[in-house]
């Protein structure tokens, strides 16, 4: 990797100021994407501002009809949380299947969402469960947060401090993994929250996570695996690569959605 300045922040505000003050500053959360990127010399930030020491950014709060997960909470802690397991088991299970144990012991929810990898799992949870992304400056609705692959509406120096998930009536996440990377080739979160049906798809879209409106419509009237499977998704705007054609991804969206509906009950 190239040389950079390493800074360790004591608070979210301190971290935000440090990144803003730097010539080309970057937050360092779990580092599961950033560090390999640096090692391959694909990025050359002037400063890394490490968030690891900020205790205010870690933890899971039970808000009754919602759960708030702070930005630097690791995947393993979400997966093992009693609160998450009891109130949104789909979210605990999603976190428990991100990457491998090493990744789950380092990677964080804030880091994952800020990076917005088009095949990451958490974006499907945020969009599918209609979560709110909380930053050091504002609250952003899931609908407004994602802005294309590896892109979000976060501004320079803006830091995800927490994510608030409303508790759904039912939800499940089903992933068909990329055989090589085990990222989602197609991952689908289905949820019913406050009577609202949402189906969020990660891994498949050229612009990252998106809602599968046709499947949502089908499920709104008939919450069943067959209803989901019966929707033939268009392959327009879907990714095509050596692991999956757009056509295959379109097909897998319906299949994964139907399996998620079965799992959600």
């Amino acid at each position: 990797m190239y040389q950079f300045n390493y800074q360790k922040a004591g608070s979210a505000d301190e971290a935000a100021s440090a990144v803003t003050a730097a010539e080309d500053g970057r937050f360092l959360a779990g580092g599961m994407t950033l560090i390999p990127t640096l090692k391959q010399r694909l990025a050359q930030p002037s400063d890394l501002v490490d968030l690891a020491g900020i205790s205010d950014l870690v933890g899971i709060e039970d808000g009754g009809d919602s759960i708030t997960i702070k930005g630097m909470t690791r995947h393993v802690d979400v997966a093992n949380s009693d609160v998450v397991q009891s109130k949104i088991p789909a979210l605990a299970s999603l976190a428990d299947n991100i990457g491998d144990p090493q990744v789950r012991n380092r990677g964080t929810i804030g880091g994952s969402l800020a990076n917005n990898d088009p095949a990451a799992d958490y974006p499907a949870a945020v969009l599918g469960l209609n979560a709110t992304v909380i930053t050091n400056t504002r609250e952003i609705a899931a609908e407004d947060y994602f802005d294309g692959m590896f892109t979000t509406v976060l501004e320079e120096g803006e830091l995800i401090t927490a994510v608030r998930f409303p508790v759904p009536e039912k939800a499940a996440y089903t992933k068909f993994p990329n055989p090589a990377s085990r990222y989602a080739l197609v991952g689908v979160m289905v949820a019913q929250t406050g009577g609202d049906t949402r189906v969020a798809v990660t891994g498949a879209g050229q612009d990252g996570v998106f809602r599968a409106g046709d499947i949502e419509s089908a499920l709104s009237g008939n919450w069943s695996a067959d209803a989901a499977k019966g929707v033939k998704m268009s392959d327009a705007d879907l990714n095509s690569d050596i692991h999956a054609s757009a056509e295959y991804r379109a097909h897998l969206i319906s299949v994964m959605a139907s399996r998620a509906v079965t799992a959600a009950g």
């Binding site: 090589a180 990377s181 050596i242």
Partner: peptide
Amino acid sequence: MLEGCVYDDNGQLLTGSYMDYTM
């Protein structure tokens, strides 16, 4: 079932890491 080396038409290795080469 898993492993396959793929070059594109320009000779760039598409399976140049574990992200794309399935061990």
